[in-house]
């Protein structure tokens, strides 16, 4: 494996680790009903499937840790065919966390855009 692909992988993993939690909370707060892992994973992929922020397999440990922190809750339901599915929904403290994280995200975006020279808000 070349050096650049190793550092690229490391960077994209570090970049995505916090964003994933934010994205999961956002998706579940907009969802009308509880969602299971694979549907959430599909929501997180872009339409053309070319750009993938994170590998789908990385979602599950994050879902578990959000649940442990009581930002999400889950229940298992049997499915018509195939294995039973775990359905996740957002909790009240999850919604509050989402608000705080959203503000943090907006601040980060503004700052990063300015640093990277994209656009100037001030």
């Amino acid at each position: 494996m070349s050096v650049s692909s190793t550092v690229d992988r490391k960077f994209s993993r570090e970049l995505s680790s916090g964003i994933t939690s934010l994205a999961l909370l956002a998706i579940l707060s907009q969802a009308e009903e509880p969602m299971y892992g694979y549907r959430i994973a599909k929501e997180m992929s872009s339409e053309d499937m070319d750009f993938q922020l994170i590998k789908q397999g990385a979602l599950y440990p994050v879902l578990k840790s959000l649940e442990r922190n009581e930002l999400l809750s889950s229940r298992v339901e049997p499915s018509v065919s195939g294995p039973p599915r775990r359905y996740y929904s957002i909790t009240d403290s999850g919604r509050e966390a989402l608000k705080r994280w959203q503000a943090l995200w907006d601040g980060t975006c503004n700052l990063m855009n300015r640093i990277l020279g994209g656009d100037t808000h001030e």
């Binding site: 299971y36 892992g37 694979y38 994973a41 789908q56 397999g57 599950y60 440990p61 578990k64 499915s79 195939g82 294995p83 599915r85 775990r86």
Partner: peptide, 13 residues
């Protein structure tokens, strides 16, 4: 745990 997650995801998908 990781194997259980992967198996669930892949078979459901």
């Amino acid at each position: 745990d990781a194997l259980a997650d992967a198996e669930d995801h892949l078979t459901t998908a």
